[in-house]
C-alpha cells in the first residue's frame, strides 16, 4: 500500500491434492507487511495460517501442495513466479523462518554450529572460520551462554528454550528483511515463552526485521504485534491494528475469538466461551461466508455469497454481511450467551 510495504500478498489460493480430493487450504488471502512491523496472524487450528506463511517462501510440502493462483510481491519480484534457483537465494537470507517445535526442527546429528554456518556459507562466501565466528556471535546474540563451547554441541544437549534460541540464530544469521515465526513459543513453557518473545522483540529492533507472527495466543499478539489478520476457513476475515481488533472488532468470528481468550478479570474457567461447532470442510468449502454455519448472526445471504470487504477505517477492514446497510443490527453479547456450550 505505502512505499513502506515490503511484502504484498494478493488473491493467494493454495490447495493440497489428497486421495479424498482437493483440500482448499487457502482461498484468496490478501495481506501486506510493512517494513519493521510485526503482523500477527491468528485464527483457529486449520484456518490456513501455516500454509499461508509457508507459501511465501514456497515451503509447502509439494506434492501434494500447490499454489493455485495469486501474487506475492517482495520488492520487485513475485515470489510465486521466481525460478527455484532464485528462491534458494531468498530463503534464509532475505526471508527467515522459525517453526513451532524446537525439539524436532533441528537436525539431531549435526552440531548446532554447523547448522548455523551452513546457511551463512551458502548465502555469503564465508570461509569456514569466518562463518564459525559469526555463528558464535549469533549464539551470543540470542543469549546462549558460553557460545564457543555450545557451538560444537548437538541439539540434544540443548534445552527446549535454548533450541528455540538456536533456531532464531539460524533464521537471523543472514540478517533477513522478514522473519516468519510460526507459533514460535507454543511448545515452550510460560517463562521461557516470555524470554523468547522478548528476545525476538529486541532483535527486531536491532536488525529492523519485519515479523509475521503466527499464534493462537492473543496475549502474545497484544505483546508483540502492531497489526493483526484474523483467518478463518482459509480466508482472512478481518484485519486491522491491534487496538482495532481488540477493541473495535466488527466480525462475529473475531468476537468469538476474543471471548474465548482468558482475561484477568475472569475468575472461573467456565467463563471462557468456546465457539460451538466445527470449522468448514475445506474439501468442499461453503460458497458464502466460511463462518456462516457457526455464526450466531448468520443471515440467508451469508450462506450464499461471500461478503465484500468493508473499509471500517484506514487501518481496519472487515469482511462480513453485517456491514451491509440492509443488515439488522447485531448485538455482540446477546447470542453468544444464549448458546449452550456443553
Amino acid at each position: 500500500m505505502t512505499n513502506q510495504t515490503i511484502l504484498q500478498i494478493e488473491g493467494l489460493h493454495v490447495s493440497f491434492q489428497t486421495y479424498n480430493g482437493e483440500v482448499k487450504a487457502v482461498r484468496g488471502v490478501d495481506l501486506h507487511l510493512d517494513k519493521g512491523e510485526t503482523l500477527a496472524i491468528v485464527g483457529e487450528s486449520g484456518s490456513g495460517k501455516s500454509v499461508t506463511a509457508q507459501s511465501i517462501v514456497r515451503l509447502i510440502p509439494s506434492p501434494p501442495g500447490v499454489i493455485k493462483s495469486g501474487t506475492i510481491r517482495f520488492g520487485e519480484r513475485d515470489l510465486t513466479q521466481v525460478p527455484d534457483q532464485e528462491m534458494y537465494k531468498i530463503r534464509g537470507s532475505e526471508i527467515g523462518m522459525i517453526f513451532q517445535d524446537p525439539m524436532t526442527s533441528l537436525n539431531p546429528t549435526m552440531t548446532v554450529g554447523r547448522q548455523i554456518t551452513e546457511g551463512l556459507q551458502w548465502h555469503h562466501d564465508f570461509g569456514k572460520g569466518e562463518a564459525l565466528q559469526k555463528a558464535v556471535e549469533m549464539l551470543r546474540l540470542v543469549g546462549i551462554p558460553n557460545p564457543e563451547r555450545r557451538i560444537h554441541q548437538y541439539p540434544h544437549q540443548y534445552s527446549g528454550g535454548m533450541r528455540q534460541r538456536a533456531m532464531i540464530a539460524i533464521a537471523l544469521a543472514c540478517n533477513p528483511k522478514i522473519l516468519i515465526a510460526d507459533e514460535p513459543t507454543t511448545a515452550l513453557d510460560v517463562t521461557i515463552q516470555a524470554q523468547i518473545l522478548d528476545l525476538m522483540k529486541e532483535l527486531q529492533q536491532k536488525m529492523e526485521t519485519a515479523i509475521i507472527l503466527i499464534t493462537h495466543d492473543l496475549g502474545v499478539v497484544a505483546e508483540m504485534a502492531q497489526r493483526v489478520a484474523v483467518m478463518y476457513g482459509g480466508k482472512v476475515v478481518e484485519t486491522g491494528r491491534v487496538d482495532d481488533i481488540f477493541h473495535r472488532s466488527r466480525h462475529p468470528y473475531t468476537w468469538g475469538l476474543m471471548d474465548s481468550m482468558p482475561r484477568l478479570d475472569q475468575k472461573r474457567e467456565d467463563d471462557l466461551i468456546p465457539i460451538p461447532g466445527s470449522p468448514p470442510d475445506l474439501l468442499d468449502p461453503p460458497r458464502g461466508c466460511p463462518f456462516a454455519d457457526r455464526c450466531p448472526h448468520a443471515m440467508y445471504i451469508c450462506h450464499e455469497e461471500m461478503p465484500a470487504w468493508t473499509e471500517v477505517s484506514d487501518s481496519h477492514q472487515v469482511s462480513c454481511w453485517l456491514e451491509h446497510p440492509d443488515a439488522p443490527a447485531a448485538d455482540r453479547d446477546e447470542p453468544a450467551a444464549r448458546v449452550n456450550i456443553r
Binding site: A298, M299, W321, A327, P328
Partner: peptide, 8 residues
C-alpha cells in the same frame, strides 16, 4: 438479510 437457522 433475515436470520438463518443455525446448523449447529
Amino acid at each position: 438479510f433475515q436470520r438463518a437457522e443455525r446448523k449447529l
